[in-house]
Design a protein around this nucleic acid. Structure first.
Lengths: 362, 362
DNA sequence: CGATTCGATCGAATCGATTCGACTAAGCTA
DNA sequence: TAGCTTAGTCGAATCGATTCGATCGAATCG
């Protein structure tokens, strides 16, 4: 029971005053004091002054948000469910951009974002979090359980790029069509030996060849959709699965796809599921003495800024990541208002860079 | 007023049952029902069964977290104050790593992380957030106001790398000493024309030359400490201020420091305040035809993984970023227990890479 | 001048759970 | 069998604010 630094009112400090105490000191009823603070009712200027003065005297910090949220039935908090470790999720600039857009809209509502990771004890936090709504980000198809919990609690749900679910507002991207368009672009140029470098297919983030089995077991909605899109054009396209959306992973996958193969055996084009992966693939190609796009065409996905990361002007599908987050935020707001917002579908736009050309004649 | 998909019980849905309703259906008092749920009291197995069955019948989702947090005086939420836009803050891998460590410890407590940005309307959310504790990350020295608010609310405070403040648990890094050591390393090698590329000096994130004036106006604690450390060795060292910790910014700063100068005029070594900046500087040097380290020595800070980003083995100060977050988390836990945890000071370790050598004789 | 309205204030109920103290009945000891 | 313990249950107070309806005095209107 040390008494050192007992000025630290961190936790035990003397009990904070409440509105009733302020009201008592000001000589008014708690209800009047409440009105004076919230400004939602007729209060004479004189009483308001008195209440505010009393609050200052008592060092009252304003209404307790916990009590407010109980009374109002709203906490002003939006949950964000992220399946990964934060460091993994935030490694992908797209996720960060989405979160940024979401934070923007949430901020306009005066709401905060509560990060909910589902790993470990986090399950408890999903069950107990005082959230008004939840946005599912970069989530696998295997979160039916979580969704059920939230639904039972009567919490509004929004999912970004997820398998359609009942009672969940979908914010989607045309991953499939966009990937098909990229593949089509390469097909038009004359490519036929195509390989993919995909985003992780499940939460284990295991790196390796893209096999029918790994695809069948996959829970990564976005990655799957993009694979499907490519296979609409090249039904047999294979490739590698990356563990992260990063330059290093792209580099490793690129080496795996390009090393130890003759020109006749090697893919003439690689479709990477993210720009970072694409940059890695390009580095691998160049490391192996292959010129891009002469010896190898490479396309990416996302449309992130690559200045300073690569000198190439990458051909890629530009997606409105921040806008996805914004749309999710607006969806939340509408749901909380009791409206029935319509699902949103975003479109990618093809950026015609300089990393694709016709395949060399062999 | 469409009635489509009216199954969406998102918001308006019929009112959720409460514990009292469950108790009534089970034929017990609310207090007993509460005991049955929390398990913190003697309840016969039969009664517990009955209560649980009633809960299932009513589709009761468990105690309302809002009411719990009012009653208990704890919300199970830890606020994280980030000064920047999220997309800016998360661009720096150090911040993400810290957050990850923090999330880890918070998760073990069953707590969630609430992102609080102070820009815009966010001020409202700082004032109203139902948090038990707050961690200040990457914050400027100009947040006395926020700290005052939290203190008034009796909220436990932890700051990572911030100017010491009363009643705020400090988690610090030896930025100054580590920077001095880096500078000393270069000094020992024989360098004397040193330039710095610093992290942003304030929230405006303006790019430009490092002048006495910008330093004097700066609010960036970490950046300032690192500048001070370097100037312990090279009192007159100047340089450039970057707008972000990124490769592109480093590249731009590198060009500004190295272009249009003769070998006798140019710095022989550059101290970058982050590894990403250092990589950018190296790219700029190489773009200008200067070899690293022969023509220019470069050091970084942080110790991030750079595989795939640069082939160089960067000489840098490795900091325990995840551990900083963990320590902050443990500090929060201790404070909430009413303990008086001691401040923590982390040390960087010098990684001797291959980007420094003796300056060329002119 | 009496009736009416309006502005300001207050009382009491409410949000949903937790918890302390009290009570009951059953099991035990002497 | 009287007296005592104890497991199980319940009532009521409490956390801190909001809000509806009622009240009271003063100002306005016919």
């Amino acid at each position: 029971m040390q008494v050192t630094a007992n000025d630290a009112r961190a936790t035990p400090g003397r009990p904070r005053p409440n509105l009733a105490a302020v009201a008592a000191l000001a000589g008014v009823s708690p209800s009047t004091a409440s009105l004076a603070f919230s400004g939602s009712g007729p209060v004479s200027a004189a009483t308001r002054e008195r209440v505010l003065a009393a609050a200052v005297r008592l060092d009252y910090a304003g209404p307790d948000p916990r009590a407010q949220s109980l009374r109002r039935g709203r906490s002003g908090i939006i949950g964000v469910v992220i399946e990964d470790r934060l460091s993994d999720a935030f490694r992908d600039p797209m996720n960060v951009a989405m979160l940024d857009g979401l934070a923007d809209e949430a901020g306009s509502l005066g709401a905060g974002l509560l990060l909910l990771t589902e790993n470990g004890v986090g399950a408890a936090s999903i069950r107990n979090a005082p959230v008004d709504a939840v946005v599912l980000i970069g989530c696998s198809t295997g979160l039916a359980d979580q969704v059920a919990i939230f639904r039972q609690r009567g919490i509004a749900l929004v999912a970004i790029e997820a398998e359609p679910m009942a009672d969940v507002l979908a914010i989607d991207l045309d991953n499939r069509a966009a990937s098909a368009a990229l593949a089509g672009h390469l097909g038009t140029l004359g490519h036929s030996r195509i390989a993919m470098v995909t985003l992780p297919l499940d939460a284990t983030r295991s790196r390796g060849p893209l096999t029918d089995e790994t695809v069948a077991r996959s829970t990564g909605f976005t990655a799957l959709e993009r694979i499907r899109g490519v296979r609409e054009v090249f039904p047999l396209a294979g490739g590698r699965v990356a563990a992260f959306s990063s330059v290093e992973e792209g580099y490793a996958a690129g080496l795996a796809l390009l090393s130890d193969r003759g020109a006749a055996d090697r893919p003439t084009a690689i479709i990477a599921q993210s720009d970072l992966l694409a940059v890695g693939v390009i580095r691998a190609a160049e490391h192996l003495g292959l010129a891009v796009p002469t010896d190898l065409s490479v396309v990416g996905f996302d449309g992130v800024k690559l200045d300073g990361i690569t000198p190439h002007d990458l051909t890629t599908m530009v997606q409105p990541a921040v806008e996805k987050g914004r749309a999710a935020g607006r969806g939340v707001i509408a749901l909380l208002r009791g409206e029935h917002p319509a699902p949103v579908d975003f479109r990618c736009t093809l950026h015609h860079g300089a990393t694709t050309t016709m395949p060399q004649i062999q």
